[in-house]
Amino acid sequence: MSSIDPVEIARFSSHAAEWWDPNGALRPLHRLNPVRIAYARDHVCAHFKRPSGAKDALKGLSWLDVGCGGGLLCEPLARLGASVTGLDASAEAIEAARAHAQNMDLTIDYRCGAVEEMEDETYDVISALEILEHVTDPAAFLHSVAQRLKPNGILLLSTLNRSAKGFLLGIVAAEYILRWVPRGTHDWRKFIRPSELQAMLKEAGLEMQDLTGMRLDPLNGAFCLTQNIGVNYLSTACRTSF
């Protein structure tokens, strides 16, 4: 049983050609990218006790990116030295990702499928960014993700908060006023409160370590990290120690 929602996959597949167009439908994701990479890099490096400033800061780490889309996150991770596996349910996205990585001379193992269907392999790091709000059963999804995490591994998540502010900024502003993302990209009912995430992680045998908000800096149009987790937020989790 996978928690993939075919309607959601069809929606993202239709953007395949635009994944790497910085001014296309996925423009907000391009803008979001630097800050979420910085967050991922810093937390992963801290977790594995290595310096985060180096050009190959992630060297030797096996990394699974679930819901990788066109590879916006996978490519930077590969440049920083990680052995990256990118997983996505959309065949079109995977195709776009493969073609782009080849153009960029990067080796990334792209696979089309669901995390529920994966067997055996485990990873030092798993990321599932901007995915939870698109799956049918986030609890089941997190359970499957946890199976793929090495005992000392670290999980990175990001999603939108089901708060009034999350609704106003994540949907009303982003989809209707600013038209950043196509209408219907998000369904507010699928947004997740941090407390719910924490509970689901616990069920999956994981413990939430960090919770950090993201917000748009109107001055320079870039996203930055914030204490406020009212709208977009990032989180890390590790296995519960016994």
Binding site: P22, A38, A222
Partner: peptide, 22 residues
């Protein structure tokens, strides 16, 4: 430099746009 430390493509528009804005 920041792009390199994030593994971003140095020709990426987010990199060039940040410079242009500043």
């Amino acid at each position: 430099r920041k792009a390199i430390s994030l593994g971003l493509d140095i020709g990426d528009s987010t990199v060039l746009d940040s410079y242009a804005r500043a």
